[in-house]
Design a protein around this nucleic acid. Sequence first.
DNA 1: TAGATTGTTAATCGATTAACAATC
DNA 2: TAGATTGTTAATCGATTAACAATC
Lengths: 222, 222
Amino acid sequence: MLIDRNLSNIKIARRAASLVITRASLGRLPLYHHYLASSADKGIHQMSSSAIGRGLNCVPVQVRKDLQYTGVIGKPGLGYSVDELLRAIESFLGWNNVNEAFLAGAGNLGTALLGHEGFSKFGLHIVGAFDTDPDKIGRSVHGREVMPLHKMGDLAWRMSIHLGIVTTPAEVAQVVADEMVKGGIEAIWNFADVQLVLPKHIVVHNEDLYSSLAPLFRKLSR
Amino acid sequence: MLIDRNLSNIKIARRAASLVITRASLGRLPLYHHYLASSADKGIHQMSSSAIGRGLNCVPVQVRKDLQYTGVIGKPGLGYSVDELLRAIESFLGWNNVNEAFLAGAGNLGTALLGHEGFSKFGLHIVGAFDTDPDKIGRSVHGREVMPLHKMGDLAWRMSIHLGIVTTPAEVAQVVADEMVKGGIEAIWNFADVQLVLPKHIVVHNEDLYSSLAPLFRKLSR
DNA sequence: TAGATTGTTAATCGATTAACAATC
DNA sequence: TAGATTGTTAATCGATTAACAATC
């Protein structure tokens, strides 16, 4: 029995160490969390991969493969512990850490993100907003004062901010992102309609709204 | 010469007919358009696939493959006509059509999308906004009056609206989407944090912000 | 024990990239 | 013509899915 335990621990350790999560699986983990959380609210504490797959429109084997990355072990014949999965996903995605971010561009979209209260549940705190528009600077947007853009880099450095959100017009997004990188920012969430070109070690997610719209538009024009 | 022309026309026709664009390529076409448009602004009228690839951080062969779907033929040794590509991408993506949409959920994000003027350049016109909050109903948001949600389905039907945008809280998103489908809507752009389950013939794009954030957060927690 | 469901290997599918003849 | 770049086939890579022994 003791030997069994040890063997199975080694197995877990080896697996967790050797497997690197794919981009695709990583993006699905939040979806599992959404669905599992709403199931937990309904008092469901145990779920099989096929039950989860039904809720998310995907096949059980994909659910099992994705969930393996979290390190949670399911029980054959029974399924997974919903609460264990929720905690594991949260910790895997770093939702328990406090992730402080700066946002550049306090326009419509920037304002909306500043006002999105849901983020704080996942550890995302937008602690500074920046713009170049004199009419906006000094104003408070959803409780945060808009500061002049040229102060962003320095301040990011001094406050050890590592996440930047770009909601500026496309024309200035690259310059703003470069400024963020100079300020020590390591990950950028970009809503401007440009592909940012940045050093390899910076992680960028380009949130191109028109890429998302493309399949929808194509459907409509037929 | 005449024979050559005919042969090459047949080739084009066959190619356009047989190839169905992949989801991945479709999503990249808007990125090409962004970059080509900004190049055209700088007076550049001819570009090679490697020049385009440099601007978008991708390899020339991918550019060539993606651009083939638009039907544009490049000139060996020279490259592509920027203006021809721009027009071809616009027509391929249906950006020349008027695409009218209804939006449900006039919160922060909904308001931002209603105020996003850029959309109209691509044929997207959000012509109606809906909410259940009595404080919001009747108010004007970026020039459009917010209407009660229960009127959405009927109105979509009568106005032949085929595109729906969901910016409601996650809890009601599924119900709202079902209502859209009843109203004849065929494509749904969903910003709520749920995977909508809808009939096969409805095209849905789930714009899950937390999926986008996942790789960024992961980078930060290391 | 029997039924259900897991974890994992191997097969398939789709998307990216390398290689190169065709051609401006 | 020579150099550059195209369009396309074949090879590779990555992600999804089928199959099944292990096990609760």
